[in-house]
Simulated assay, not measured.
Amino acid sequence: MELVERISIIVYLKNMKHERQLRKFGNIYHSNKKEQYVMLYTNEDKIDDTVQHLMKLKYVKDVNVSPFKYVKRDYSNAKTDKKEYLNF
């Protein structure tokens, strides 16, 4: 079984009644009716096509792709920085 990389997309909607139509773009993980957005996960290889298609829909206000892939996750120097800070 091969794992597929997935990316989170936050889609802001004009009206929440269109939430069900977003199921064809990926798995809906979370939806917020007050702020009118839906968080869904899609395959990484299809992310460009999905975002372009979502932006063309008339009931979509904005689309944000998660920046998690580009965030620095190497914390090897975190312990040394803390020790230097604690030594007066």
Rank of each mutant, 00 (worst) to 15 (best):
E2F: 09
L3A: 08
E5W: 05
E5S: 14
R6E: 11
R6W: 06
I7M: 09
I7L: 11
I9Q: 05
I9N: 05
I10D: 00
I10Y: 01
I10R: 14
V11P: 00
Y12T: 06
Y12A: 04
Y12C: 02
N15E: 06
N15F: 01
M16H: 00
M16K: 00
H18P: 00
R20K: 14
Q21N: 07
Q21L: 08
L22S: 01
R23G: 07
K24Y: 06
G26E: 07
G26A: 06
N27L: 13
I28S: 03
I28A: 04
Y29E: 14
Y29K: 11
S31V: 06
N32C: 07
N32D: 14
K33F: 13
K34Q: 12
K34G: 07
E35Y: 14
Q36P: 00
Q36F: 03
Q36H: 08
Q36L: 09
Q36E: 13
Y37M: 05
V38E: 03
V38Y: 01
L40I: 03
Y41V: 03
Y41H: 07
T42Y: 05
T42W: 04
N43H: 11
N43P: 03
N43V: 09
K46A: 07
K46I: 03
I47A: 12
D48T: 12
D49V: 08
T50R: 05
H53W: 02
M55P: 00
M55Q: 14
M55R: 15
M55G: 00
M55S: 08
L57V: 00
Y59I: 00
V60S: 03
V60N: 03
V60Y: 04
K61N: 12
K61W: 04
D62I: 07
V63W: 01
N64I: 13
S66K: 03
S66R: 02
P67E: 11
P67M: 12
F68R: 15
F68Q: 15
K69F: 08
K69V: 08
Y70D: 12
Y70E: 12
Y70M: 09
Y70K: 14
Y70L: 10
V71W: 08
K72S: 10
R73V: 10
R73G: 12
D74C: 10
D74K: 12
S76Q: 09
N77D: 14
N77I: 11
A78N: 04
K79A: 13
K79R: 14
T80Q: 11
T80G: 01
T80I: 11
T80M: 06
T80S: 09
D81S: 14
K83G: 00
Y85Q: 09
Y85T: 05
N87E: 13
N87I: 10
F88H: 12
F88L: 13
F88R: 14
